[in-house]
Simulated scan of single mutants.
Amino acid sequence: MDRQADRPGARRRSRFFLELGPILADHIAQHVRLNTPDENGETRRQRNERFGLPAVDPDTVNPDFEYLLEWFWDISAGRSHGFSGPNPLSMTEIANWSTLTGTVVRREELSILRAMDGAFMSAIAKEQAEVTERQKSGA
């Protein structure tokens, strides 16, 4: 039995992390949308600059939680790739990263990392689908 979960402070912390997960997941999705190269190797960020459109950056994150973004991108750099692109991060990859770096990952942080990865995978799939659709239509 987890005695920590019965304490009011632990419940508030868990609720806080549950609310933080979607914010960071949305940040990841925005990042992917702006920085994923299209079939010509150009990102939306570069295309916007080329057409003189204002720079759009993902929403800023509270500096107290930037470490989760740093962890995610560090783990993501070692992710495996298949024929159709990146694979979801496995629990083994996260555990190995944690062991190799000496980083203690709490269960709330793990949930957030997995939500961020879900957003990453969804955003990548959407970008790939848009490229495929453009190629079909000849645009």
Score class of each variant (00 low, 15 high):
residue 132 T to R: 07
residue 91 M to G: 14
residue 98 S to N: 06
residue 125 A to G: 15
residue 12 R to C: 13
residue 3 R to Y: 14
residue 61 V to K: 01
residue 55 A to K: 15
residue 119 A to H: 03
residue 49 E to K: 10
residue 59 D to L: 10
residue 9 G to N: 14
residue 93 E to A: 13
residue 107 R to C: 08
residue 25 A to Y: 02
residue 111 S to N: 09
residue 118 G to M: 11
residue 37 P to W: 11
residue 52 G to T: 08
residue 79 R to H: 14
residue 72 F to C: 00
residue 88 P to C: 06
residue 92 T to A: 15
residue 49 E to M: 07
residue 75 I to K: 02
residue 82 G to P: 04
residue 78 G to W: 12
residue 124 I to A: 06
residue 35 N to V: 01
residue 76 S to E: 14
residue 55 A to W: 10
residue 2 D to C: 11
residue 39 E to Y: 00
residue 48 N to Y: 05
residue 35 N to M: 10
residue 12 R to S: 05
residue 73 W to P: 02
residue 129 A to T: 09
residue 52 G to M: 13
residue 91 M to S: 10
residue 63 P to M: 08
residue 53 L to K: 09
residue 54 P to W: 04
residue 2 D to E: 13
residue 73 W to C: 01
residue 89 L to S: 03
residue 24 L to P: 06
residue 42 E to T: 04
residue 1 M to D: 12
residue 39 E to G: 03
residue 36 T to G: 00
residue 4 Q to C: 12
residue 110 L to W: 01
residue 138 G to N: 03
residue 81 H to D: 06
residue 82 G to H: 08
residue 127 E to I: 04
residue 124 I to P: 00
residue 65 F to T: 02
residue 118 G to F: 03
residue 119 A to K: 00
residue 61 V to E: 01
residue 50 R to A: 15
residue 103 T to R: 00
residue 4 Q to I: 12
residue 103 T to E: 01
residue 2 D to Y: 12
residue 31 H to N: 14
residue 77 A to I: 11
residue 1 M to W: 10
residue 107 R to N: 06
residue 9 G to M: 12
residue 116 M to H: 04
residue 117 D to L: 03
residue 117 D to F: 02
residue 124 I to W: 03
residue 63 P to I: 01
residue 132 T to Q: 10
residue 46 Q to T: 10
residue 113 L to H: 00
residue 9 G to H: 09
residue 98 S to H: 01
residue 97 W to D: 03
residue 28 I to P: 06
residue 26 D to S: 11
residue 117 D to M: 04
residue 13 R to H: 15
residue 57 D to V: 14
residue 135 Q to H: 06
residue 116 M to V: 15
residue 26 D to L: 09
residue 81 H to R: 11
residue 26 D to W: 01
residue 11 R to S: 08
residue 104 V to S: 10
residue 24 L to H: 11
residue 93 E to D: 14
residue 31 H to E: 09
